[in-house]
Amino acid sequence: MKGKPMDKRLTSTDVVARLRDGMTIGIGGWATRRKPMALIREILRSPLRDLTVVSYGGPDVGLLAAAGKIRKLIFGFVSLDVLPLDMHFRNARQAGAFEVMELDEGMVQLGLRAAAMRVPFLPTPVGLGTDILKRNPELQLVRSPYANAEELVAMPALKLDAALLHVTESDARGNCVIMSPDPFFDDLMARAANEVFISCERIVATEKICSHERARYQPFERSIVTGVVDSPFGAHPTAGVPGYGIDVEHLKQYNAATSPEAWAEYRRCFVDLDSHDDYIAAAGGRGKLASIPPPVY
C-alpha cells in the first residue's frame, strides 16, 4: 500500500505555539535581507519569553529586543545596513536588558557548523588577541595535537532548539529553494537546529520548484524541515529578492519609533494585527511592496 506524503504546512501561529520559553532560536537571513519577519511579529504577539537568539542581526533582533523577548543574544553585529545602527537593539543593549555573547561573525558560522556536525567545538585562530575571549570567559583554548602545537580557540557548538528561516518557494513537504543572490548561513542554521520552520513567498507543487537547474538553489533537503508557512512578503521590511527590496522608508519609521509612545504606535500599526494580510495592507499593499527595488550598494 502506498503511503501519503507528509504535509508540513503550518500557520505562523502554529509555529510559535510549538516554541517554548527559554528556547535557543536561530534566525536566518542577514541584517536587512531575507529575515523571517512575519514569524518574528508572531512571536511578538505571543507570550513567548526568555529566548536565546542567534542571528546575523537586523530588525529581527531589534523587534524582539524592543518587546523584551530576549534573555541572551549571541551575535556578531546588529545593523540595518542603509541605517547603520538599529536603535531598538542599541537602546536595549545599552540598558543591559539582556546577556550577550558577542562574537566575530565567522565564529558564529563555526559554532553553527560544529552543532551541525555534532562535534562539541571547531578549532580556529579567529578571536585570538582580541577581547572576544576576555568578554566570553566560557570560550576555551585548545592546543593542536600536531607538530607545531599551536593554541587555537575552541569555538563551541551553537545548538539551536529551533531555526526560523525565510525562503523563496517551498512545497508542502519542505522541498525549498532560495532564489535571492545570497543564501547566507541558513543551511547551517537548519542543520544546527532540532526543529526547522520555514516561511516562504509561495507554497508550490514540487515539480514547479525543482528542475535540474533550480535544484542547485535548494539549501537543504526536506527531511530536516519541520514546518512550512505560506507567507508572501514574509521578509518585509527586509528584502525578499527576487520579488522585493529593502523597504528603507519603513525601516526609518521603525528605527525612529523608540519612545514608549512611538513604539506603542508602531506595534499597533504593524505588529498587533489579526492576520498577515492585514500586515501587508498596513505596509502599503502588495502592489507597493512588489515595486520596492532590489538594494544597490
Binding site: G76, F77, S79, L85, R90, D104, E105, V126, G129, T130
Partner: peptide, 11 residues
C-alpha cells in the same frame, strides 16, 4: 554607546 558589534574584525 552600542555600535555595530565586533563584526568580522577578529577573523
Amino acid at each position: 554607546a552600542a555600535i555595530l558589534g565586533v563584526r568580522g574584525l577578529a577573523g
